[in-house]
Design a protein around this nucleic acid. Structure first.
Length: 513
DNA sequence: TTCCGACAGTGGGGTCGCAAT
DNA sequence: ATTGCGACCCCACTATCGGAA
């Protein structure tokens, strides 16, 4: 199949805002791929959702700065592109920058202008065609003439869409039905929606709920198969070799085969959680694992059991999965949990968890199955929220659907000692289109110099904004040595002068430094 | 006809390891 | 030895479409 067919489909998908029309376009091209190039349906499916099947290629927008002149005619095939991407993935991180540049140059010189644009978006991961995983899933169902639910289930159990597309189009519902949970192969983790507080979370569920401690660490999916252990992150990256102490814990479990879901976290000597940055640095490092293990040991906590000794449990209710988990896991590797229908009791549990230094709680409906890969209503996370009144120091022009609007604001606090203003980070979150319109006008007025002159627009520090955030983290990027985690706008305030905004001393005290 | 669940998009800070400087 | 870059970790929030009520 020619790449130009993918590019043309992408153009059509981008051009319409109707999801059903997007699905039609994608399904038609998938069907053509099945007829012409059945061995590469998985690659075509990946391309149609604007991504490369290769996890990493070492190529990003910086390395695509200057491209060779485009080809006149569309001759590139999907197979050609896949071969190049495969070669790039194989040489990524192996000290062959010149080789990679040559592969990129050759590939792009064979592409037409529109194909170059598509390739760039695919490598950079910025397809922006209004169709990613979810819409693609519907297209696969349509093209294979199988139910959405069958595709969704297969994708969740297989972890990836490519092989599922291939099965759906070549073997239909029968082939999809053979895709099951496989011990050793990661599946998509179930995700949680969020609620502002405990009563709101409980209000979404009938009767008794389960409250679990939400640990501020790294999500971990663990597979045990006759003594062989594999560990995967939320995006299904294999991190087995990095976490030997976690492997040891799993080897000791009294199971032949199991798939567990949980979190790993670094604790201090008293069992209190260390900052997320400590756990994050440990799991990101592939240096000598035995040394790291001695320096920053990690503790796994499990909260779900998806398979046990030949039996899949994903469709069983949480209450039963939890019971089976408790039978095979020692007390030290299950975080505190409470089942209740009483709001006050739930609130006390939340307060206690937070007081002990944890991130919050996840409220779960005990009757529901494991909905892999979805941010379903079955799990609701609740975290404490802090707010500050800060000043807008500068603002950046937006991109994509925010093009032409002043979007991302730079946040400053007052330094009570020097009287100056100290930047604590940026945010673009929480803004409605109405707010974007308003702030684009407002910040044009406050601009120091020509607001159209550059990407970042410096402002007279006059506009006060109320900001919500999850916590304070150490920063080397900002002069105050700290930054706000997950900052988002609540509202602009005109009732408060800059002389009365919050101070860096307040923020430092909040962080406990 | 209205409501609401699912989805895509728009980016935030921190960290590591490797290549280039 | 230092810096730049790519990829990963954590993630909040709004707008929109289209099926459910």
């Amino acid at each position: 199949m020619l790449l130009s067919e993918i590019v043309e489909t992408s153009r059509a998908v981008t051009a319409t805002s109707s999801r059903t029309a997007k699905v039609e376009h994608l399904a038609a091209t998938l069907r053509r791929a099945a007829a012409e190039d059945p061995k590469r349906i998985d690659v075509v499916a990946s391309y149609l959702s604007g991504t490369l099947p290769q996890r990493r290629t070492g190529v990003s927008w910086r390395s695509l700065g200057e491209l060779p002149p485009p080809a006149e005619e569309a001759t590139l095939t999907v197979a050609d592109v896949d071969a190049s991407a495969e070669e790039l993935a194989g040489t990524s991180g192996s000290g062959s920058g010149a080789t990679r540049r040559r592969i990129v140059a050759e590939l792009f010189s064979r592409a037409t202008a529109v194909e170059q644009a598509w390739l760039r978006a695919a490598f950079v991961g910025e397809a922006r065609q209004g169709a990613a995983d979810g819409v693609m899933l519907q297209a696969i169902a349509k093209a294979g003439d199988v139910p959405d639910s069958a595709v969704r289930r297969a994708v969740m159990l297989a972890g990836r869409t490519g092989p599922v597309a291939e099965a759906a189009l070549t073997g239909g519902a029968d082939a999809l039905g053979t895709i099951e949970l496989e011990v050793g192969r990661p599946l998509r983790p179930m995700l949680a929606a969020s609620a502002p507080d405990v009563p709101a979370a409980l209000a979404t569920m009938p009767g008794e709920v389960a409250l679990e401690t939400k640990l501020d660490g790294i999500r971990l999916q663990a597979h045990v198969d006759e003594g062989a252990v594999s560990l995967f992150t939320r995006t299904l990256e294999d991190v087995t070799d990095r976490l030997p102490e976690v492997v040891d814990v799993l080897r000791r479990l009294p199971v032949r085969q199991a798939v567990l879901d949980g979190e790993v976290i670094a604790l201090d000597e008293t069992g209190r959680p260390l900052p997320f940055q400590v756990t994050g640095a440990r799991t990101a490092s592939s240096a000598d694992p035995e040394r790291l293990r001695a320096e920053v040991p990690l503790t796994p906590y499990f909260f779900d059991l998806l398979h046990l000794d030949g039996e899949d449990l994903v469709d069983h209710p949480l209450s039963e999965r939890w019971e089976r988990l408790a039978e095979v896991t020692s007390e030290g590797h299950v975080a505190p949990r409470l089942t209740t229908a009483d709001v006050e009791q739930a609130q006390r549990f939340f307060d206690d968890v937070v007081a002990r230094g944890h991130e919050g709680v996840v409220v779960k409906d005990p009757q529901l199955p494991y909905a892999a890969g979805r941010r379903g209503p079955g799990w609701i996370k609740v975290k404490p929220r802090h707010t500050l009144d800060l000043v807008v120091l500068a603002v950046e022009w937006g991109s994509g659907r925010r093009k032409g609007w002043l979007s991302n604001i730079h946040l400053g606090a007052r330094d009570a000692e020097t009287g100056g203003l100290v930047m604590l980070g940026k945010t673009f979150k929480g803004m409605t289109d109405e707010m974007l319109r308003w702030q684009t006008e407002r910040f044009r007025e406050l601009a120091v110099g020509d607001p159209e002159a550059g990407w970042v627009v410096e402002l007279e520090p006059e506009q006060v904004v109320e900001i919500a955030f999850d916590g304070v983290q150490r920063s080397t990027r900002y002069p105050g040595g700290m930054a706000l985690r997950f900052a988002r706008v609540i509202r602009y305030r005109d009732d408060k002068p800059v002389s009365e905004i919050d101070t860096v001393q307040t923020v430092r005290a909040l962080a406990g430094w």
